[in-house]
């Protein structure tokens, strides 16, 4: 595979981020932005102690964000472990909320390709509309780019109709150069979305990393005309930060990407913070987490 190494200006990326993040969004635009953020959320529960009850509760939350405000959008998808896919699928019948499942031995990806493909096929049969795979970071860091690329292609094939999100786990990729390279590689290999992190490694989605990935998507679009989606995940729990990311997308990729088909937030507590801000905007009174359902 042909790989072109981009050298990323780390300080420049940080500077660009600070400029974009200093933008202030107020009033009607803020309410629009908050609603847009809600519609882009992949409500996520990825814990070893997840139970069918918890997943059902999360699905209910996804469809009924805050019933006092009936015109709110619903979230884009819920994101669960493979064993929970049938439960989520059933709970979300008659809604237009997608079921996303992590697969390929999430979060470490340390198993053989054969098992990974088997897992992907299984979650798709069980009803997952979207598959979040992890790349083999160890192989990537050792320079086995062809292996990583082939793996993504094979997983994409195994997905069939389901959308494929490729998790780069940028917290383990060490440099922004690597982040750019992994993004390019994943898009070339057939990713529909590229995603920053599993949420299990710190740091998760940091603003410079997201910026570099967005720029990779922009360049790929210019080269091929294909629109690839982006999903930052992990550590995004405040509405303010989410809106700052919207500014970043708009400025880097344009209006087309301000859509749940091309941009998602992987988060668990973000939804409630956004809801609290929406209620604050409409009532003028600062809200308390006590009055919002736990997800």
């Amino acid at each position: 595979m042909e790989t072109f190494i981009h050298r990323i200006d780390q300080v420049g990326a940080q500077e660009r981020v600070s400029r974009l993040f200093s933008r202030s969004i107020k009033k009607e635009s803020k309410i629009d932005a908050l609603n847009t953020v809600l519609s882009m959320i992949d409500l996520t529960t990825l814990e070893g102690k997840d139970s069918p009850g918890k997943v059902k509760q999360l699905c209910y939350k996804a469809a009924h964000l805050h019933d006092q405000f009936p015109n709110l959008p619903s979230v884009a998808a819920i994101c669960v472990y493979p064993t929970m896919v049938p439960i989520a699928k059933k709970a979300l019948e008659n809604t237009n909320i997608n079921v996303a499942s992590v697969a390929t031995a999430f979060p470490a990806g340390m198993t053989s390709l054969e098992y990974k493909l088997e897992e992907v096929k299984r979650v798709v049969v069980d009803g997952a509309d979207e598959v979040d795979m992890v790349i083999s970071r160890g192989k990537f860091l050792r320079g086995e780019y062809n292996y990583v690329s082939d793996e993504i292609s094979l997983v994409k094939e195994a997905c069939g109709q389901a959308h494929l999100k490729v998790i780069l786990e940028t917290g383990e990729l060490v440099t922004l150069d690597n982040v750019r390279l992994a993004s390019d590689l994943a898009m070339e290999a057939g990713a529909d979305f590229i995603k920053t992190s599993t949420g299990k490694v710190s740091p998760a989605a940091t603003p410079p990393v997201v910026l570099i990935m967005l720029e990779a998507i922009r360049d790929y679009y210019k080269k091929t005309g294909k629109k690839i989606g982006m999903k930052p995940a992990g550590g995004i729990s405040k509405a303010k930060l989410a809106i700052q990311y919207l500014v970043m997308i708009k400025e880097t990729l344009g209006q087309d990407w301000l859509d749940a088909d091309l941009f998602r937030f992987g988060a668990s507590s973000l939804a409630n913070d956004v809801l609290m801000q929406i209620v604050k905007q409409s009532t003028g009174v600062y809200q308390s987490a006590n009055y919002f359902s736990i997800d």
Binding site: Y286, S288, N290
Partner: peptide
């Protein structure tokens, strides 16, 4: 007003 209305 804010001291007394804040829901938290």
């Amino acid at each position: 007003d804010h001291f007394s209305s804040h829901m938290d």
